[in-house]
Design a protein around this nucleic acid. Sequence first.
DNA 1: CTTTGGATCGTCT
DNA 2: GACGATCCAAAGG
Length: 193
Amino acid sequence: MPLSPLPRSFYDHDSRILAPLLLNKVLVVGERQARIVEVEAYAAAEDPASHAYRGPTRRNATMFGPPGHLYVYFSYGMHWCANVVSGGRLDGHAVLLRAGAPVAGVEAMRAARPAARRDRDLCSGPARLCQALGITGADDGSDLVVASAEGPWLGEDGTPPPRRPGRSARIGITKAVDHRWRWFVAGDTNVSR
DNA sequence: CTTTGGATCGTCT
DNA sequence: GACGATCCAAAGG
Protein backbone atom coordinates (compact mmCIF):
# COMPACT_ATOMS: atom_id res chain seq x y z
CA MET A 1 0.00 0.00 0.00
CA PRO A 2 1.23 3.52 -0.76
CA LEU A 3 2.04 5.84 2.11
CA SER A 4 -0.62 8.39 3.04
CA PRO A 5 -0.83 11.03 5.81
CA LEU A 6 -3.19 10.62 8.75
CA PRO A 7 -5.97 13.15 9.49
CA ARG A 8 -5.56 15.74 12.25
CA SER A 9 -8.24 13.96 14.28
CA PHE A 10 -6.00 10.87 14.55
CA TYR A 11 -3.65 12.84 16.81
CA ASP A 12 -6.31 14.53 18.94
CA HIS A 13 -6.20 12.19 21.95
CA ASP A 14 -4.61 11.81 25.36
CA SER A 15 -0.93 10.89 24.79
CA ARG A 16 -1.45 7.54 26.53
CA ILE A 17 -4.16 6.65 24.04
CA LEU A 18 -2.28 7.88 20.97
CA ALA A 19 1.11 6.35 21.88
CA PRO A 20 0.35 2.67 21.09
CA LEU A 21 -1.59 3.74 17.97
CA LEU A 22 1.63 5.27 16.54
CA LEU A 23 3.35 1.88 16.47
CA ASN A 24 3.90 0.71 12.88
CA LYS A 25 3.25 4.15 11.42
CA VAL A 26 6.04 5.43 9.14
CA LEU A 27 8.13 8.55 9.82
CA VAL A 28 9.25 10.12 6.55
CA VAL A 29 11.98 12.67 5.78
CA GLY A 30 12.69 12.93 2.05
CA GLU A 31 13.77 9.53 0.79
CA ARG A 32 14.33 8.24 4.31
CA GLN A 33 11.57 6.23 6.01
CA ALA A 34 11.47 4.48 9.41
CA ARG A 35 8.63 2.40 10.86
CA ILE A 36 7.92 3.45 14.46
CA VAL A 37 8.52 0.51 16.83
CA GLU A 38 8.89 2.18 20.25
CA VAL A 39 7.15 5.17 21.87
CA GLU A 40 6.59 6.85 25.25
CA ALA A 41 3.67 9.01 26.40
CA TYR A 42 4.23 12.28 28.31
CA ALA A 43 1.16 13.70 30.02
CA ALA A 44 1.91 17.38 30.71
CA ALA A 45 0.42 18.79 33.90
CA GLU A 46 -0.14 15.38 35.51
CA ASP A 47 3.37 14.13 34.64
CA PRO A 48 6.45 15.54 36.46
CA ALA A 49 8.69 13.90 33.82
CA SER A 50 7.12 15.92 31.01
CA HIS A 51 8.75 19.05 29.60
CA ALA A 52 5.24 20.53 29.70
CA TYR A 53 4.72 19.83 33.42
CA ARG A 54 5.29 23.43 34.51
CA GLY A 55 3.36 25.00 31.67
CA PRO A 56 4.38 26.70 28.40
CA THR A 57 7.94 28.00 27.94
CA ARG A 58 10.05 29.09 24.98
CA ARG A 59 11.34 25.55 24.44
CA ASN A 60 8.10 23.56 24.72
CA ALA A 61 5.81 25.97 22.86
CA THR A 62 5.08 23.45 20.10
CA MET A 63 3.57 21.04 22.65
CA PHE A 64 0.95 23.63 23.47
CA GLY A 65 -0.06 24.11 19.84
CA PRO A 66 -2.40 21.95 17.76
CA PRO A 67 -1.92 18.15 17.63
CA GLY A 68 -0.22 16.44 14.70
CA HIS A 69 2.91 18.60 14.83
CA LEU A 70 6.48 17.57 15.70
CA TYR A 71 8.08 18.77 18.95
CA VAL A 72 11.89 18.54 18.66
CA TYR A 73 14.16 19.31 21.62
CA PHE A 74 17.90 19.39 22.28
CA SER A 75 19.12 16.86 24.83
CA TYR A 76 22.34 16.47 26.85
CA GLY A 77 23.99 19.28 24.93
CA MET A 78 24.38 17.24 21.75
CA HIS A 79 21.32 15.22 20.73
CA TRP A 80 17.95 15.93 19.13
CA CYS A 81 14.80 14.01 20.10
CA ALA A 82 11.36 14.12 18.45
CA ASN A 83 7.81 13.91 19.78
CA VAL A 84 4.38 13.80 18.18
CA VAL A 85 2.12 16.44 19.74
CA SER A 86 -1.17 14.89 20.82
CA GLY A 87 -4.03 15.82 23.11
CA GLY A 88 -6.36 18.68 22.46
CA ARG A 89 -5.26 22.26 21.93
CA LEU A 90 -3.31 23.86 24.80
CA ASP A 91 -2.79 20.85 27.02
CA GLY A 92 0.83 19.89 26.28
CA HIS A 93 0.50 16.17 25.67
CA ALA A 94 3.09 14.48 23.41
CA VAL A 95 4.50 11.09 22.44
CA LEU A 96 8.28 10.59 22.29
CA LEU A 97 9.44 8.59 19.27
CA ARG A 98 12.05 6.26 20.76
CA ALA A 99 12.95 3.86 17.95
CA GLY A 100 12.22 2.92 14.35
CA ALA A 101 12.91 0.18 11.84
CA PRO A 102 14.68 1.45 8.70
CA VAL A 103 12.33 1.07 5.70
CA ALA A 104 13.83 3.22 2.92
CA GLY A 105 16.81 5.49 2.34
CA VAL A 106 18.98 3.15 4.41
CA GLU A 107 22.15 4.26 2.62
CA ALA A 108 21.48 7.87 3.64
CA MET A 109 20.89 6.72 7.22
CA ARG A 110 24.21 4.87 7.29
CA ALA A 111 25.96 7.99 6.01
CA ALA A 112 24.27 10.09 8.70
CA ARG A 113 25.24 7.64 11.45
CA PRO A 114 28.76 6.29 10.87
CA ALA A 115 28.86 5.09 14.51
CA ALA A 116 26.15 2.50 13.82
CA ARG A 117 27.80 -0.89 13.37
CA ARG A 118 24.68 -2.74 12.27
CA ASP A 119 21.52 -1.50 10.56
CA ARG A 120 19.55 -2.33 13.69
CA ASP A 121 21.56 0.40 15.45
CA LEU A 122 20.54 3.10 12.96
CA CYS A 123 17.24 4.13 14.56
CA SER A 124 17.26 2.27 17.90
CA GLY A 125 17.00 5.25 20.26
CA PRO A 126 15.30 8.67 20.31
CA ALA A 127 18.46 10.59 19.36
CA ARG A 128 19.60 7.89 16.93
CA LEU A 129 16.27 8.04 15.11
CA CYS A 130 16.60 11.79 14.64
CA GLN A 131 20.23 11.53 13.56
CA ALA A 132 19.43 8.80 11.03
CA LEU A 133 16.59 10.79 9.50
CA GLY A 134 18.34 14.16 9.74
CA ILE A 135 15.77 15.67 12.12
CA THR A 136 17.03 18.75 14.07
CA GLY A 137 15.66 21.76 15.88
CA ALA A 138 14.94 23.28 12.49
CA ASP A 139 12.12 20.72 12.20
CA ASP A 140 10.45 21.72 15.47
CA GLY A 141 6.82 22.56 14.74
CA SER A 142 6.63 20.65 11.46
CA ASP A 143 3.09 19.59 10.51
CA LEU A 144 3.03 15.78 10.25
CA VAL A 145 -0.36 15.80 8.52
CA VAL A 146 1.12 17.35 5.37
CA ALA A 147 3.17 15.05 3.12
CA SER A 148 5.98 17.45 2.26
CA ALA A 149 8.94 16.65 0.02
CA GLU A 150 11.54 17.99 2.44
CA GLY A 151 10.30 18.20 6.01
CA PRO A 152 9.18 15.32 8.25
CA TRP A 153 5.68 13.86 8.10
CA LEU A 154 3.97 10.71 9.30
CA GLY A 155 2.50 8.10 6.97
CA GLU A 156 0.24 5.09 7.14
CA ASP A 157 0.83 2.10 4.85
CA GLY A 158 -1.95 -0.17 6.02
CA THR A 159 0.04 -1.98 8.70
CA PRO A 160 -2.05 -1.90 11.89
CA PRO A 161 -0.55 -1.37 15.34
CA PRO A 162 0.28 -4.59 17.18
CA ARG A 163 -2.80 -6.21 18.68
CA ARG A 164 -0.75 -6.89 21.82
CA PRO A 165 2.16 -4.38 22.06
CA GLY A 166 4.97 -4.75 24.59
CA ARG A 167 4.64 -2.38 27.53
CA SER A 168 6.92 -1.12 30.32
CA ALA A 169 7.96 1.82 32.46
CA ARG A 170 9.62 4.73 30.65
CA ILE A 171 13.38 4.87 30.13
CA GLY A 172 15.97 7.45 31.13
CA ILE A 173 13.81 9.57 33.45
CA THR A 174 14.15 10.26 37.18
CA LYS A 175 10.61 11.47 37.99
CA ALA A 176 7.30 9.61 37.74
CA VAL A 177 9.29 6.45 37.07
CA ASP A 178 6.48 4.08 38.00
CA HIS A 179 4.06 4.83 35.17
CA ARG A 180 4.12 2.17 32.45
CA TRP A 181 3.79 4.60 29.55
CA ARG A 182 6.26 2.98 27.13
CA TRP A 183 4.95 0.79 24.30
CA PHE A 184 6.91 -1.15 21.70
CA VAL A 185 6.56 -3.74 18.95
CA ALA A 186 7.37 -6.92 20.86
CA GLY A 187 10.24 -8.87 19.36
CA ASP A 188 11.37 -6.14 16.95
CA THR A 189 15.17 -5.99 16.88
CA ASN A 190 15.17 -2.20 16.46
CA VAL A 191 13.65 -1.52 19.89
CA SER A 192 16.21 0.26 22.10
CA ARG A 193 18.01 -1.65 24.84
C1' DC B 1 28.25 -9.93 27.51
C1' DT B 2 27.88 -5.68 31.29
C1' DT B 3 29.40 -1.51 33.49
C1' DT B 4 31.29 3.04 33.61
C1' DG B 5 32.41 7.70 32.61
C1' DG B 6 32.97 11.54 29.35
C1' DA B 7 31.13 14.68 25.98
C1' DT B 8 28.59 19.21 25.77
C1' DC B 9 25.10 23.24 25.97
C1' DG B 10 20.23 25.13 26.01
C1' DT B 11 16.94 25.88 29.39
C1' DC B 12 14.90 27.31 33.57
C1' DT B 13 15.69 28.37 38.67
C1' DG C 1 24.68 27.32 38.28
C1' DA C 2 22.70 22.64 37.90
C1' DC C 3 20.71 19.40 35.24
C1' DG C 4 19.05 16.55 31.81
C1' DA C 5 13.04 12.14 27.85
C1' DT C 6 21.31 10.21 25.35
C1' DC C 7 25.06 7.93 22.99
C1' DC C 8 29.40 5.83 22.51
C1' DA C 9 33.94 4.00 23.40
C1' DA C 10 36.66 1.72 26.56
C1' DA C 11 37.50 -1.45 30.11
C1' DG C 12 36.50 -5.57 32.67
C1' DG C 13 34.51 -10.63 33.15
